[in-house]
Every structure is written in structure tokens, then in C-alpha cells.
Design a protein around this nucleic acid. Structure first.
Length: 282
DNA sequence: CCCGGAACCTGAAGGC
DNA sequence: TGCCTTCAGGTTCCGG
């Protein structure tokens, strides 16, 4: 069996945010070197030009976006997509540095990305942009009711709904699978058909899975590493994700993998039966 | 509006 | 051994 490709999701980006914020807070951006201009959203000139001279007032995360907040009210956003990483030193393994940020006090950030899917963008109106995204799953506004009302509008498989950043922010393939396992839901169940009780289980599972992963500094299955280059240990806590053939931690049945909307979905065929009797509310 | 599929990208892995 | 194809998945765009 092959374990490939895990990408930075909410816990991984949050780990990067927590690591770099104390290092870059209050620093001035001296220069942005775009070694690969194709990562720039909009024009490269704007991305590397406008932030120069501004000071970083905070490092935020919204979904999978890492956002350097600038003192001019704008945000310099990084999205790592599949294989991007933020490093404090130039990488020695697989060096594919796409951009370098030179800050005051000799602080430097390196944006490394083997594949070139990751992007850097200067966002003028942060509020408007972030409003288009679903709620933050660890925020107070993300209630069981909020999740229920959002899922009720979609008949797509629940696995696909969890991956849709407009419905809920920050969830990727790994943590969607982990949450569905904990809540004992089959990945192809139509989102709108979940009972209130099932949605409540899913809500709890999402919070547990993400919180535990953050505590473990993310999952380094493939290319993700901390800014220091060290590996996160969240994979050690996984029940099903990227574990096809391994015994289910709950019942011992070999875990399976099926395709849902062209995405691999790891699950237990016994604990997550598709046709469990639903709590129908007549 | 809702949904499915293609495209983007590159290294790993599998087939022949 | 080596070439060729397929796959991995976050996001956007396009078409039905």
C-alpha cells in the first residue's frame, strides 16, 4: 500500500502561524524576493512591491490561509496548497524556494514548494475575502446548529461537503476522514440527509480531531514540516487516514479506501456503514 | 444555484 | 533496467 501526499490543512497552518508569529511580530518587511513569479496572485510587482516598508502587526490564519497582517490594513496571504512549507532557514532537502521574505532584525522566511500550486497574494479587503469562506470550525460561532444549517443545503456526499471551503473552512482530506470515522458516518452519505444527532456527533468529532492535531503540531506524512524543519506527530494519532489495510482501532476490520469525487476516502466498512438506520424526523 | 469534471503541478510508484 | 502512465489532492474555472 502506498502512503502519499498529505497537505497542510488547518492544524498544519495553525502550527506554522503559532511558530512564526512571535518571530515576525513588529518586524518591517525589507524585501520580498519572488524566485518564481508564477506563485503571485495578481501581478508579481504588486505582491513584492506594496508590502515593502510595512510592519507586521499580527499573523492570522483563516481556513488554510496564513496571513501576515500589515500596518497598512492589508494582508499578505500564503496558501501552501499541496506541498508548500514555510521555513526559517533555507531548506537542505528538496530545495524549491519560490519566495524569500527579508524582515528587519535579520529575520527571514522561506516559502518552499516542490509543486508550484502554492500562492502568495496581497489582499486589500480582508473582510470581504474571508466572508466568502465557511466558518472556522474552532470558533465560537461554529455551533452544531451552524453546521446543521449549512449541511442541510447540500445533497453532495458529506465527505465532499467537509472539503468545500465555502461550507466549512480549513478541513482537508485527512481530517475529513478522521472526523467521519469518529462520528461513524459513511463518506458518501448525502450531507443534507444527516440527522441532528449525526450532525452533533460530526461537530464534536471535528473539534476533537483538529484540536488533537494542533496539539501534535500537524501531520508530517509527506512534505509538511514545521518552520524549524522538524516533523509534526499528528499522524501517530490517526485512526484511518492513509491507513488502508490496517485494522480498525474500534472493531479490527481492515480499513478500506474508496473514491469520493476523485478523492481518496479512508474508512472502516463496518463502523461506518452507509445504511445505518437514520433518525428520521417526520 | 447546484453539481461534476478538467486543469494546474511534479515526484513517486506501478505496469509492461 | 527503463520508459510510460497513473496517482496524490487544494483550488478554480467551466459546462450542463
Amino acid at each position: 500500500m502506498s502512503y502519499t501526499a498529505c497537505m497542510p490543512e488547518l492544524p498544519e497552518v495553525e502550527t506554522i502561524r503559532r511558530t512564526i508569529e512571535p518571530l515576525v511580530l513588529g518586524k518591517t518587511i525589507l524585501e520580498i524576493r519572488l524566485l518564481d513569479t508564477s506563485i503571485a496572485q495578481g501581478t508579481p510587482e504588486r505582491v513584492r512591491g506594496e508590502p515593502v516598508g510595512t510592519t507586521i502587526t499580527a499573523v492570522n490564519r483563516r481556513g488554510k490561509h496564513l496571513i501576515l497582517m500589515l500596518d497598512n490594513g492589508k494582508g499578505l496571504a500564503l496558501h501552501l496548497r499541496m506541498t508548500g512549507s514555510v521555513l526559517l532557514e533555507p531548506p537542505t532537502h528538496n530545495p524549491r524556494v519560490r519566495a524569500e521574505l527579508l524582515l528587519s532584525d535579520d529575520v527571514r522566511l522561506y516559502f518552499n514548494d516542490m509543486r508550484r500550486l502554492g500562492v502568495m497574494e496581497l489582499i486589500d479587503d480582508l473582510d470581504a475575502r474571508m466572508e466568502k469562506m465557511g466558518p472556522e470550525p474552532l470558533s465560537d460561532e461554529f455551533t452544531t446548529e451552524a453546521l446543521q444549517s449549512r449541511l442541510a443545503r447540500h445533497r453532495i456526499p458529506i465527505k465532499a461537503a467537509l472539503l468545500d471551503q465555502h461550507i466549512i473552512a480549513g478541513i482537508g482530506n485527512m481530517y475529513a476522514d478522521e472526523a467521519l470515522f469518529l462520528s461513524r458516518l459513511h463518506p458518501t452519505t448525502p450531507a443534507a440527509e444527516l440527522s441532528l444527532e449525526q450532525v452533533a456527533r460530526l461537530w464534536t468529532a471535528l473539534r476533537e480531531v483538529l484540536t488533537l492535531a494542533i496539539a501534535n503540531q500537524g501531520a508530517s506524512i509527506d512534505t509538511y514540516v514545521l518552520p524549524s524543519g522538524e516533523r509534526g506527530t499528528a499522524y501517530d494519532c490517526f485512526n484511518v487516514a492513509h491507513k488502508k489495510g490496517a485494522p480498525c482501532p474500534r472493531c479490527g476490520t481492515p480499513l478500506e479506501r474508496l473514491m469520493v469525487r476523485k478523492r481518496g476516502a479512508y474508512y472502516c466498512p463496518v463502523c461506518q456503514r452507509p445504511d445505518k438506520p437514520q433518525n428520521s424526523e417526520a
